[in-house]
Design a protein around this nucleic acid. Structure first.
Lengths: 206, 206
DNA sequence: ATAATTTTATAACGAACACTATGAAAATCA
DNA sequence: TGATTTTCATAGTGTTCGTTATAAAATTAT
């Protein structure tokens, strides 16, 4: 008796496109233009499918966007966050995180900046809840940084009188600013020199 | 023969609304929703006029936006930049600038964040040139900070081996990040503690 | 007064928006 | 084979977008 997944033959006409690859293209369009400015027409053109296929496979524009965001998080955010937990001090982890983010943000293959930061900053009231979801993702990123700093305090590589919450807000602010710098065309080198400056703000042991 | 301005009586039916006040309302709508997401319908509702009046007085949506940006710069940016040149050191000037910006960004009377940073970050290709104009304004702000730092170096209150360009990019990055923090609902106090941390990155004299 | 000029409100324009009804096409199931 | 199921491409739906044609209203110039 087999317990593993059942490779049931799909009834009906098979899909003529790769759902995952289409989602990848949609992600890039949303990343580049933002949620509201990316039109269904832009999306279907990039995905290589027609509107009915898009709606059959992904529901509607909002669900497609949210799925694209999940894909982005899985492909980028989670990998990047892992740098925080690399061997070494909290300071090294944060520095590494910032450096890797700056590389991703200026990658020629991708739209500039961070999708979570850029893709739903300003929008009409009809998509205010999308705005809130993205703000939650940004907040989650800040919490991850804060947790790493607090761990450093427990482990002794961060001064005991450090205000971890404030320091985490500061680095979140820098990351969000980096996104705009990247969008404006700043080079990886330029952003990294700003990171080096930001790291000067790391609390000194007395 | 008079050469000075002629206070000629305006022929035709007089305008029934205050052009300047209407522009103020338009500015706030663009500030809150961004260039593309602010619809003519949103604008006319806030301005208290009908579309034909809007087009007669301001040309079109793009010209109205650009005029609103100019108004914003005149009312906010130029005032804020002046803090850079207050008596005192470059460090004091930059710190004061950041603090005043954080107050403006979290002002309950206004939309959150900076209009120059927020209102045209992501948009479709049809308004790419608006994006570029806003990027230029951001660049001009960075240059103003850089100039102040270089003056501090000449006057001796900034260490001679400081890289003014890099330091200016860093503070621009922080300001842009502050905008997103404010948009996400951060309090003035929260942002100001991030500013205090950022100021720790100011170069020390050796 | 009457002509000239400008703004007003009403109502619409074509284009683009997100989205879908329809029926043919392509697969599996019985 | 014939019924069933799902996707496909075509061609639309109604709504909203930015924008404007039209004519009445309100002012100045003659």
């Amino acid at each position: 008796m087999k317990i593993i997944s059942k490779p049931v033959k799909q009834r009906g006409r098979p899909r003529s496109f790769d759902r995952d690859e289409a989602l990848e293209q949609a992600m890039e369009v949303f990343w580049r233009y933002g949620y509201e400015s990316a039109s269904i027409s832009d999306l279907t053109a990039a995905m290589g499918i027609t509107p009915p296929s898009l709606y059959a496979a992904f529901g509607n524009k909002e669900q497609l966007f949210l799925e694209a965001v999940e894909r982005y998080l899985a492909a980028n955010h989670e990998r990047l966050s892992s740098y925080l937990d690399n061997p070494g001090t909290a300071r090294e982890g944060v520095a590494r995180l910032l450096r890797e983010i700056s590389c991703m943000m200026t990658d020629c293959e991708c739209p500039k900046g961070c999708m979570v930061v850029m893709s739903a900053l300003n929008c009409s009231e009809s998509s205010a809840h999308i705005q809130k979801i993205m703000a939650k993702h940004r907040k989650a990123s800040e919490v991850r940084i804060r947790n790493r700093i607090e761990r450093g305090m427990r482990e002794g590589d961060v001064p005991a009188d450090t205000n971890a919450a404030v320091l985490a807000v500061f680095f979140s602010t820098v990351i969000e600013g980096m996104s705009i710098q990247a969008k404006d065309g700043a080079s990886a080198r330029k952003i990294q020199s700003a990171i080096d400056t930001a790291m000067q703000a790391w609390p000194q042991s007395k």
